[in-house]
């Protein structure tokens, strides 16, 4: 029969995690766009999928939605693999990958009517409601070809909400929005999450992720370099401190020589470093014995931005080292990979 890619029974998916990816790999000739990615999005998560441009986020999402075939590995949505069970796997799933795309020669309402027809299950009855939510009702009769980028993003959200999703996959939803639009988008995502929708938010906007997400995966050069709770990541990042003394240059020298003090640098506030609390105590004693007065010592938790750059720049350095050394399994440097459009 036309229209089915598999004849097997489709599992109900009840109890299965919204997203579960195991060992996802996508190669384009010699280029590894996605390299053994595992993802675990749990019910109720607002899950941030973070990475620099070209890190493989969009390619991973495309594989999860069955738009492209993985070279290796599997991705399941509520326990169902889109490549094996086709559209059944997308029940309860909505969103967009890269920018949402619509038929420019149709109005927003006609676009939504078309998508509602492809959704079935009474989606057409929700068109007015979702247009109201994204505040496009007054422009619903206008052709999408004349819409701004921000309006298309909002229409993308409306199209996703038509499906009454249990899992919402949003790929850079705030890209191209003005500050007010970004704020509104964040509020909407938070509201949808509070309504019980699991959200998988792909982004390179760190403040957005820090504000919205409780769990994150950080991907760089096609590999997941961290997956887990955002709070755990920040704890793992270690406590940071700011220090101002009567002689910052000598204090920096001594801090760098002190056991347990890491990443000591001079900055506009004096010094910055990371350390366990006990090692901070030892440092203050050492400085005091050396006749250096402490003017201010302020603890700071690492921000997501700090951690992100620490993880991703560390990965880049390791990749470059591996490539130069010709070590077995070494990947191409990131600059080379970014030369290829991998979505």
């Amino acid at each position: 029969m036309l229209g089915t890619r598999a004849t097997e029974d489709v599992a109900s998916g009840d109890g299965a995690p919204p997203v579960r990816a195991r060992g996802l790999v996508k190669r384009y000739d010699d280029i590894v766009a996605v390299d053994h990615v595992d993802l675990n999005v749990h019910t109720g998560d607002v899950y941030g999928f973070l990475g620099p441009n070209g890190a493989g986020k969009t390619t991973t999402l495309r594989m999860a939605l069955g738009l492209i075939t993985p070279t290796e590995g599997t991705a399941e949505l509520f326990g169902r693999d889109p490549l094996r069970v086709g559209a059944h796997a997308l029940e309860g799933v909505a969103g967009f990958v890269e920018a949402p795309r619509f038929y420019p020669y149709l109005s927003a309402r006609k676009n939504l009517e078309l998508l509602a027809a492809l959704d079935g299950a009474g989606a057409k009855d929700r068109i007015d409601e979702v247009l109201e939510i994204v505040e496009l009702a007054p422009r619903a009769a206008h052709r999408v070809g004349g819409y701004s980028h921000g309006m298309r993003q909002r229409l993308g959200i409306a199209a996703a909400l038509l499906r009454r999703p249990r899992l919402l996959i949003l790929d850079e939803p705030a890209t191209g929005l003005d500050p007010a639009g970004m704020r509104d988008m964040r509020l909407l995502i938070r509201r949808l999450a509070s309504d019980g929708i699991t959200v998988l938010l792909s982004s390179h906007q760190l403040p957005e992720v820090q504000e919205l997400c409780d769990r994150v995966a950080i991907v760089d050069s096609g590999r997941v370099v961290y997956e887990g709770a955002l709070a755990d990541l920040r704890r793992q990042g270690g406590a940071g401190y700011r220090l101002r003394t009567t002689d910052d240059s000598r204090a920096l020298e001594m801090a760098r020589g002190q056991h347990g003090i890491e990443h000591a640098v001079a900055n506009e506030h004096g010094l910055g470093f990371q350390a366990e609390e006990k090692d901070v105590g030892s440092l203050t004693l050492t400085l005091g014995q050396a006749g250096i007065g402490i003017l201010a010592l302020t603890p700071e938790l690492a921000t997501l931005e700090d951690l992100f750059f620490r993880l991703t720049e560390g990965e880049q350095a390791r990749s470059a080292d591996g490539a130069e050394s010709g070590a077995p399994g070494a990947q191409a440097p990131i600059s080379e990979r970014k030369a290829v459009e991998i979505g």
Binding site: A117, L118, G120, E129, D184, L192
Partner: peptide, 27 residues
């Protein structure tokens, strides 16, 4: 966007095997 007006009607709810469109609908 009126995030504040996101009604519970579009909130998460179990969707089990909804009636799917036919090929004629797509045509």
């Amino acid at each position: 966007m009126s995030s504040a007006t996101a009604s519970p009607a579009v909130a998460a709810r179990a969707v089990t095997h909804p009636r799917r469109p036919t090929t004629m609908t797509i045509w």
